[in-house]
């Protein structure tokens, strides 16, 4: 099956792929800006920014957005700070140690969030943190740490330690080696890990729902509530408000990665 011999199949598949990839995003944009879009009209009667205005004029939604941002940033920073040394220590370990750490990390990712949430709910409640932003942050850390440990385990398994050894031979202390050698070389994986950590928390529903107990509002929970109460336009605007920061974070991490590619490669 050579692509060169299948120009029609390739063109048709590209067309289908474009429609498939863009249709859901297009419907979100159209619905969020639609004015007077009643069944069976296939296109709205007009467009305005009413749903977006309603979304951000509501102080409760703004609070939910702020909570989501705080949780995303705190989770990204903390999970990266913990997963980096963990991945490095595990990669330096023997094969059974690496496998044990990888298994634990994958278990944190593989456990359904509802399952993890039900268990963590009781833990957080017993610590007196049920229904608090800090309790929700602790619960978001578990899957984020799982993902990022797998990332750094992969990075350090292929890591060339000769530069660090050379720096040590030249008299660099452990902190100097981190500051001058390791961190500049790790800029790309650290940037990607921060982006991934943010996204894991940003899109989280089950853990927030269970551990937050309805007292902690985040943007994904608000979008679901709007949808369930029939506010389709606000829900579409909220869904896009969820998507745009995710796109920005991913785009920024890719640009940062591209800018550091020459250093790391």
């Amino acid at each position: 099956m050579t692509p060169r011999r299948m120009p029609i199949a390739r063109s048709l598949l590209l067309l289908a792929l474009t429609v498939f990839a863009l249709a859901p995003l297009a419907i979100l944009i159209a619905t969020s800006f639609a004015r007077g879009w009643f069944y069976p009209a296939a296109v709205p009667a007009g467009f305005d920014g009413g749903a977006w205005h309603d979304l951000f004029a509501d102080a409760a939604h703004r609070g939910a957005l702020l909570n989501s941002l705080l949780l995303g940033i705190a989770t990204a920073l903390t999970a990266t700070a913990c997963a980096l040394p963990l991945g490095r220590a595990a990669a330096a370990g023997a094969r059974p140690v690496r496998r044990a750490v990888a298994l634990l990390a994958f278990a944190a990712v593989a456990l359904p969030p509802v399952v993890l949430g039900v268990g963590l709910q009781l833990t957080v409640l017993s610590l007196g943190l049920g229904g608090t932003l800090f309790g929700v942050f602790l619960s978001h850390l578990v899957p984020a740490l799982g993902y990022l440990t797998l990332v750094f385990l992969g990075v350090f398994t292929r890591w060339d330690t000769r530069l660090e050894e050379a720096a040590a031979t030249l008299g660099a202390t452990a902190s100097m080696r981190w500051r001058i050698v390791l961190l500049p070389l790790l800029r790309r994986p650290i940037t990607e890990a921060l982006a991934l950590g943010f996204l894991v928390s940003w899109a989280q529903v089950a853990l927030t729902l269970l551990v937050g107990g309805g007292a902690v509002r985040t943007l994904p929970l608000d979008v679901l509530a709007m949808l369930q109460s029939g506010q389709d336009q606000r829900a579409a605007a909220g869904a896009l408000a969820l998507t745009i920061p995710a796109l920005i974070v991913l785009g920024a991490s890719r640009i940062a990665a591209r800018n550091t590619a020459a250093v790391v490669a």
């Binding site: 590209l14 792929l17 474009t18 990839a21 863009l22 859901p24 995003l25 419907i27 979100l28 619905t31 996204l199 940003w202 899109a203 529903v205 994904p220 979008v223 679901l224 949808l227 389709d232 829900a235 579409a236 909220g238 869904a239 896009l240 969820l242 998507t243 995710a246 796109l247 974070v249 991913l250």
Partner: peptide, 19 residues
């Protein structure tokens, strides 16, 4: 084009598919 949906949160995907 195929990679476009990658960063879209699951909740946003659900809303779009419902609509």
């Amino acid at each position: 084009v195929a990679a476009l949906p990658l960063p879209v949160p699951t909740v946003a995907t659900a809303v779009a598919v419902l609509l």
